[in-house]
Amino acid sequence: MKVGKAKADNRATWIRVAVLASAVGALEIACRVGWVPATMVIAPSAMVKALIETLQSDDIGAHLQQTLSAVAIAMGLSIVGGFLIGFVLHWVPFLRRAFNPFLAAYYAIPHFAFYPLLIVIFGLGPAPLIVLATLFAMVAMIVATMAGLDRVPRVLLKTARMHRLSLLEEIWRIRLPAAAPHLLSGVKLAVAYSFIGVIAGEFILSTSGIGHEIAYAYDNFDNPRMYALILFVLAIVTCFNMAVYAYERRLARRRGA
């Protein structure tokens, strides 16, 4: 039964690769033949070529570094902060009751509406981006942490008491591992949201960073550079997300989730 499932998975993967490859191929042909004007979309091969050229130009390093360090900081802050806040809210019912309505409505708000305000407060530069991305990503981690801790089966806590674990041991040996799948989904979201927050912020209002470079290339009708950078961002983010996803899958498979 397991083998059959793995086979079906494999088949879906192959079809997926084939579908994506033929989509790229079709776009390539459409661009080469001239069905799609180069002012709209350039051929995938041209994108790759432009990407290589762009990566060789000297100015890109600084933008890349700025974007990635902002993402890294936002990621760290939102994962650690989100975990701690979620932990406290789980433990203190009063605080939780007070904050629950906020959390339920949080992702309904188009938070980018507040981005201009952050710029007014923090000025242009990495600070408002990091704040924005952290605020965006942290709540996902808070919610995931609470969900994970809430769902620790009571019988496991009874088992902890049977083995007479101390509170710290109970948290470390029972509650956290039991909540791990939820924590990991929180991390996955926090990673994706940190990228989204930083790059979208750069795109709209910033004077540097990869997001800004894309917008800038668009404004200057520099399609090769624009597509090169879009490709670059999508590739980086997808790699990152896939790495987290793969780790999660490994853990889940072992635990049979």
Binding site: F195, I196, F203, M242
Partner: peptide, 12 residues
């Protein structure tokens, strides 16, 4: 995958 990318980059 599409859900977790910064879709703003596709806006241009």
């Amino acid at each position: 995958g599409l859900y977790s990318i910064p879709k703003i980059t596709l806006y241009p």
